[in-house]
Design a protein around this nucleic acid. Sequence first.
DNA 1: TTACAGAGGGTACTGAGTGCCATAGTCTCT
DNA 2: AGAGACTATGGCACTCAGTACCCTCTGTAA
Lengths: 243, 243
Amino acid sequence: MREVLAQAAFQLFLERGFERTTVDDIVARAGVGRRSFFRYFPSKEDAVFPDHERCLAEMTEFLAAADDSDPVGAVSDAARIVLRMYAANPEFSVQRYRLTREVPGLRTYELSVVRRYEQTLAGHLRSRFGEDGDGALRAEVIAASVVAAHNNGLRLWLRSGGEGDPEVAVDHALALVREAWGRPAASTASTAPAVPEASTAPVVPFAVSGGGDGDGEVVVMVARKGTPMWRVVQQIEAAVGEN
Amino acid sequence: MREVLAQAAFQLFLERGFERTTVDDIVARAGVGRRSFFRYFPSKEDAVFPDHERCLAEMTEFLAAADDSDPVGAVSDAARIVLRMYAANPEFSVQRYRLTREVPGLRTYELSVVRRYEQTLAGHLRSRFGEDGDGALRAEVIAASVVAAHNNGLRLWLRSGGEGDPEVAVDHALALVREAWGRPAASTASTAPAVPEASTAPVVPFAVSGGGDGDGEVVVMVARKGTPMWRVVQQIEAAVGEN
DNA sequence: TTACAGAGGGTACTGAGTGCCATAGTCTCT
DNA sequence: AGAGACTATGGCACTCAGTACCCTCTGTAA
């Protein structure tokens, strides 16, 4: 039934476009009641990505069983799981890609899906790197890199119409990431110098009327050297105005 | 009017929550017609992020004027523009952060905003790296890394309640990215293009010696109203000093 | 047979977002 | 001053996604 609905929906989306297809249209073609649609898909967008939940679960399971010795390799392999899901149905994936490119609502929805993959990868890396120090930072940056690399290779394949093997492009992209992050780089983390807090107002803005029309007005500011940048900007924004 | 609506909306979101606030509630509090709301904000979510459009335009402008010698440094500095927008209104940013964490719809919306920043950065890198070979790949991965690093530092600051200087965490995070992807060394602040614009210099900084030790020194700046924020900041950074 | 459970269907409602038109203020040209 | 145009705003009606509530049907166990 879920399958029937997903297929009916996808057909209609290709025929009339996503926005010009109502849920009533979908359930009419599928021959079911409108209420049933929302039983199987929380939203209209979900019908376009019917298999991501399963794929996400698969990735989670894979990472839980992964070897601890090479976390970056593990998340790279986890990303390949997603790739294979796409590669398993080239024509569907390509059509969906074209559809998603056209429809802003679907693009946004896809972002939230990708984000969940990314967070799953980041969570795994975090658990290996540790939460403290730069562990969380490295985890998130590497996860983002892996996802970006994967998506680059995947899009390359999708734009080609689903011809050939997508894994070669993705492998190459992931190799580039591994080259940058894979080896344990000597962290030259220099603890940033603490900026002293000025108790007195660091910035004193004056608005001075200029030519006569309000637009040529000039703002004069006085700041102490060493004032934190954000505090200066805060004052200036208030003075210069948002326009 | 836009401002009035945004404030009324944000108040109500904090009071009753996002979903439990209808557009009718907002326009009632703002004292305007319902139709006007959608004139200023395409969707209810947009009212929560009223300044991202301007910030994105600012970033685009900044990158268009950026030096070609150090693309990674340029996109890092571009990311700092976003940071400063958050830092300019700490209490608002923190409240919005907490709100966004709670509401799935807002999280998704924020993702689409972040994505646009990322694509802007990637576009700039792509134009410098070249589209061919690994140029596009490197551009997208580095853009994703920069965004992830920026967001990590930003979230750290937001979770702290907006205390202190967010730039130190973000600088540190961006340094980690630069270490992995950028060329060696090159402090970010020192690459700031030194001045410029003989025609209409928007900012004229003066350093005036103060007490005797260099720390009490005072800087006087003059800016025309309507000057792009990033240009002002650029000048001030050169004058106030990097730290 | 009744009791029950679970899948699907139907109806009415809320609320976001849009299209269309009316009205008021402002600017310009003569 | 007055006609015409342009812009900002309000009002109204409509579509459609998503939800709450209740109904029917079917199969199973006692």
